[in-house]
């Protein structure tokens, strides 16, 4: 299975705790060099997936390859090339920031002790913690701990960096800094795998994304592919709604039953889903729209030919936000 072009690949990755299936047969494909957003509401199985990727938890079934090698079998050679921030920072409160990083660095048998002081200093500088390096971590704020956690992931040059909710506890400025940091990492060829339950945080830095819901991977691909996959809707503004519905029906488009907003001058807006993408089990691929003869111009031509006075026409695609909400549900209904 290992594919050299993928930083992370899983096949049917599943984790069952007792009677609950927390991660249900996910097939992740994270291209090398990408910034991969791993999205999903709290409790959708993101962190459990990450723990399995890093060999902290064993998979109930399925295969994992990280950087082209089997996990967890090859953890000893894979993990030194991976930096990680997993479910918040974890540090010894009675040690200083520097001492904490030295401790974790000394655990890595591939990390050179001769360069440790320099590397620790650089990592602290990179996250802007140099001034607090000598302070006990007990005195750190959550945001500072979060930065220290990111510094830990940067102690040695990594090929893959896994950041689980990296912006938790950070103020907007800190969030922006994380974004810039991620950008600078990808510039040097590092793959960044970043999880979040907030789409907005990730959308700006990712090239690829996957969406989890209740342990299932409901979407995956490049951001463009995902945007394409958002359900497109036809929107016709016409004084002849009845005729418009009929024509749309002939084209195979089921117009929404309830008349949407009516305009006193221009008539009514008729909308219909332009059936693209979301078929069955949820995998969204590109190009579904192009396979059909339902180009916008065809629809307009058909409408006009059918005697519908078209005063406005649009094909609207859902934003990534809409897609995310559609895939994962809205508000606080945390996935079970």
């Amino acid at each position: 299975m290992p594919d050299g072009g993928l930083a992370i690949q899983t096949r049917g990755l599943t984790k069952v705790f007792g009677r609950q299936t927390v991660v249900n047969g996910i097939d992740l494909s994270v291209p090398r060099g990408s910034v991969f957003g791993f999205l999903g509401p709290n409790g959708s199985g993101k962190t459990t997936s990450i723990r399995m990727l890093l060999g902290l938890a064993s998979a109930t079934s399925g295969e994992i390859s990280v950087l082209g090698q089997q996990m967890p079998k090859r953890a000893g050679t894979v993990l030194p090339r991976v930096g990680a921030l997993i479910e918040g920072p974890g540090f010894y409160p009675f040690l200083s920031g520097t001492a904490n990083l030295r401790r974790l660095d000394s655990a890595d048998r591939f990390a050179q002790s001769s360069t440790r002081t320099v590397r620790v200093g650089e990592a602290l500088e990179r996250v802007g913690l140099t001034h607090a390096a000598g302070k006990k971590v007990r005195a750190y704020s959550l945001g500072m701990k979060q930065r220290l956690g990111i510094a830990n992931a940067l102690l040695t040059p990594r090929e893959l960096i896994v950041l689980d909710e990296p912006t938790n506890g950070l103020d907007p400025q800190g969030t922006r800094e994380v974004r810039n940091l991620v950008r600078s990492l990808t510039a040097s060829g590092t793959t960044v795998f970043v999880s979040s339950h907030l789409l907005a945080e990730i959308e700006q830095m990712c090239t690829h994304a996957a969406v989890m819901r209740s342990g299932h991977l409901v979407a995956q691909g490049s951001l463009d592919e995902l945007r394409q996959a958002g359900q497109a809707r036809v929107r016709v503004l016409t004084p002849d709604p009845g005729a418009a519905r009929r024509v749309l029906a002939q084209l195979g488009l089921a117009a929404d039953a309830d008349a949407s907003d009516t305009h006193p001058l221009d008539g009514e807006t008729v909308t219909a889903p332009l059936d693209a993408g979301q078929d069955g089990d949820g995998a969204i691929g590109p190009g579904t729209l192009a396979d059909r003869p339902l180009d916008p111009e065809h629809i307009v031509a058909a409408l006009v030919a059918g005697g519908v006075r078209v005063r406005g026409f649009a094909v609207e695609r859902a934003t990534l936000e809409d897609l995310f909400v559609a895939l994962t549900g809205e508000g606080f209904d945390v996935a079970q």
Partner: peptide
């Protein structure tokens, strides 16, 4: 302390 997971992935 949460350091166990970081030690293990160090690795």
């Amino acid at each position: 302390l949460g350091t166990l997971r970081y030690l293990l992935v160090s690795p």
